[in-house]
């Protein structure tokens, strides 16, 4: 079965991203396909490569990046939500005249249409938020 995942909250403050990660991992272990993980609202903050959590804590962003690499996951950060919150890839940084980008490996920035497409193409959509 094909799953779409929506993550509405950023890392650490809420458990949403952790729950979404555990669910995604379990679905992959069961042989399901993850059509896309879409990050919206503060969820876009899961995609920053600048976070430096303490050594003894989980690294939420790196964990997503590693899972994406291992399973060719499509991790999509909403462009409108990302721009509001200061998450940029190289293209967006250039287009908006910013001097840096901060998107992590395995994440890409795209439009809200990608969320609707996930709703259409996936057999099930699961929402994690606050």
């Amino acid at each position: 079965m094909k799953f779409g995942i929506l993550v509405n909250e950023g890392p650490y403050t809420h458990q949403a991203s952790d729950s979404a990660y555990q669910f995604t991992k379990a679905a992959l272990e069961k042989g399901h396909e993850i059509f896309r993980v879409f990050f919206y609202h503060d969820g876009v903050n899961n995609g920053t490569r600048l976070s430096v959590p303490p050594q003894d804590d989980r690294h939420i962003t790196n964990r997503w990046s590693a899972l994406a690499k291992e399973h060719q996951l499509d991790l999509v950060v909403c462009v409108a939500a990302a721009q509001r919150r200061g998450l940029l890839d190289a293209n967006e940084a250039k287009r908006n005249g910013k001097d840096a980008d901060n998107i992590a490996d395995g994440f890409r920035i795209s439009g809200l249409g990608q969320l609707i497409e996930a709703g259409i193409q996936a057999d099930r959509l699961v929402v994690f938020g606050d």
């Binding site: 609202h41 409108a80 249409g113 609707i116 709703g119």
Partner: peptide
């Protein structure tokens, strides 16, 4: 949440669902 939900509705309208 209310505002960004509305933004999804507006974008989603183009998909004829």
């Amino acid at each position: 949440y209310a505002l960004e939900s509305l933004e999804v509705v507006l974008i989603g309208a183009a998909f004829d669902q």
